[in-house]
């Protein structure tokens, strides 16, 4: 069996305590919620925190509060199973519930949380491997090595943001509330993700995610389409989150198209949204938006499927997401 490295485990029961422990240990500490991302990474020695701060005893993180009309607040510790099944979420934010229901497997969804999902480490076929495997290729830039195998001349890492909820949160313009010894602050999902697979979050390591605030659920609709090889277990190799606000006659007033799983961060395709505004969601308009997105997508060879094919099918999947919003 692959074994975990040694580490000290803390199980605080309040957010304040958790933040204090994490701050005390600086970069040696990591939070863990469901552990479905962190522990496998630790077994493979991609991440080797000396101190792990467990969040599962902090009941405040497991609450869903507020109203759809003014925006729902989802605690970072809410499990994906609950998110997928919660009646309020399903009624007002069906795409959020749906995306959660597609993540990994039922067992992993029982453990995995929305917080962990939004803060997922970036992924790459050269990186999500055991220490020995990585040693056989002399490692890579993201951990223990020098170069990027995906883009050898590149100064940066192209590991992919593979979260299914992240593109939606960006499309929905959700706000994330963090706490640290310096107090609370809110980061919009749109500003959370960095463009580099190594520095993939703009938050500091000791900042604890408290909750995610979804915008009031009126006047807009959103959809999520996930592409992967198998209908369970697999990470997305392409995620499309689309959000539109339409007038009574169906004319698009606002539109956001976000691609997930093809870049180090979820990427808003501004031009694809812009081309829809002022028009109805006709086949023609949808096709144009899809083509723009496809043109701008830059999948690389670090996930399942060939990157060329992943690019080839972007328009189709953007189209399917938008068609669902007609």
């Amino acid at each position: 069996m692959l074994r975990l490295p040694d580490f000290d485990y803390y199980a605080p029961s309040t957010a304040e305590e958790a933040v204090r422990v994490a701050a005390d240990h600086g970069p040696d500490a990591a939070y863990v919620a469901g552990g479905t991302d962190l522990y496998p990474n630790m077994k493979r020695r991609q991440q080797t925190p000396a101190v792990v701060v467990g969040l599962s005893r902090i009941s405040a993180l497991r609450e869903i509060t507020g109203e759809a009309s003014s925006g729902l607040r989802i605690g970072a510790g809410v499990t994906l199973t609950r998110l997928a099944e919660d009646e309020r979420v399903r009624a007002a934010y069906p795409s959020v519930a749906y995306a959660a229901s597609t993540i990994s497997t039922p067992l992993l969804r029982n453990m995995g949380t929305i917080g962990g999902n939004l803060l997922l480490d970036t992924r790459c076929n050269y990186y999500d491997q055991t220490y020995e495997w990585r040693k056989s290729i002399d490692f890579c830039m993201k951990r223990d090595g020098e170069i990027c195998w995906v883009a050898p001349s590149s100064p940066k890492c192209w590991a992919v943001n593979s979260s299914d909820e992240a593109p939606l949160m960006v499309a929905l313009d959700a706000k994330l509330r963090f706490v640290s010894p310096e107090g609370e602050r809110e980061i919009p999902a749109r500003e959370l993700y960095g463009a580099d697979g190594i520095n993939y979050l703009t938050k500091r390591p000791d900042e604890l995610l408290l909750d995610v605030c979804l915008p009031p659920a009126n006047g807009w609709r959103a959809a999520y389409v996930k592409l992967r090889r198998r209908a369970s277990f697999d990470f997305p190799v392409l995620g499309v989150a689309a959000r539109v606000k339409t007038a009574a006659d169906g004319t698009v007033e606002e539109a956001t198209v976000v691609l997930g799983a093809v870049h180090p961060s979820p990427r808003i395709i501004e031009e694809a949204g812009a081309v829809l505004v002022g028009r109805k969601l006709t086949d023609e308009a949808i096709r144009e938006a899809g083509e723009i997105a496809q043109h701008l997508a830059r999948p690389l060879d670090n996930t399942d499927f060939l990157p060329h094919w992943r690019k080839q099918v972007v328009a189709t999947h953007v189209g399917r997401a938008l068609a669902g919003l007609r």
Binding site: N125, Y126, D128, Q129, W133, S136, I137, D138, W149, R229, R230, A231, S232, F233, D234, F235, D304
Partner: peptide, 21 residues
């Protein structure tokens, strides 16, 4: 890369059908 290395020796990335397929 650096010799002949198995692309991804794991159950997640060696794709075999799930019950869904």
């Amino acid at each position: 890369n650096r010799g002949v290395v198995h692309k991804f020796p794991s159950m997640l990335e060696y794709k075999s059908p799930t019950t869904m397929e």
